[in-house]
């Protein structure tokens, strides 16, 4: 069978589908001071997965606010700088109007994913940290 670390080189999704891959990629991003990109990406997936059960609405609102505050509000943050202004105002609008939707972070997540696919992921595959691991 193909060793996991070779699969990681196939696509960003193969990398993010593996615990060890995530761990190594995050260590690399941390060195580059941009681990927030990965944390945000997972936070968006986790947010979408939250089930709509009773009592969850309050939790969702709290979580949406927390994601907004941590990654988007500070315009100097690594995540905020990579998200289009229109996308940021859409999310802000959702939070301000308490209009919480499971898909409210989807566009922002896509933008961060594209950035990782074009930038940090290929650099990771050429990094010492990955090469030493393999």
């Amino acid at each position: 069978p193909t060793p996991p670390y070779l699969k990681w080189a196939e696509s960003l999704h193969s990398l993010l589908d593996d615990q060890d891959g995530i761990h190594l990629f995050r260590t690399f991003l941390k060195q580059e001071d941009c681990a927030d990109l990965l944390d945000f990406w997972f936070a968006c997936s986790g947010f979408r997965k939250l089930e709509t059960s009773e009592g969850n609405e309050e939790k969702k609102l709290k979580l949406a606010k927390a994601i907004y505050k941590k990654y988007i509000l500070d315009s100097n943050g690594i995540v905020s700088r990579q998200i289009k202004p229109a996308t940021k105002s859409f999310i802000k609008d959702c939070v301000v109007r308490l209009h919480i939707d499971p898909a409210m972070f989807d566009q922002a997540q896509t933008e961060i994913q594209t950035m990782m696919e074009e930038n940090t992921y290929p650099v990771f595959l050429k990094s010492d940290i990955y090469l030493e691991y393999t």
């Binding site: 589908d17 593996d18 997972f42 986790g46 939250l50 939790k59 979580l63 606010k65 994601i67 941590k70």
Partner: peptide
């Protein structure tokens, strides 16, 4: 009640793949 950071951390962890 969970603090915002705890909530965020749990959310991030919940989206990660489970142990092989």
């Amino acid at each position: 009640l969970d603090s915002e950071d705890d909530l965020l951390q749990k959310c991030i962890t919940s989206a990660m793949p489970k142990q092989r």
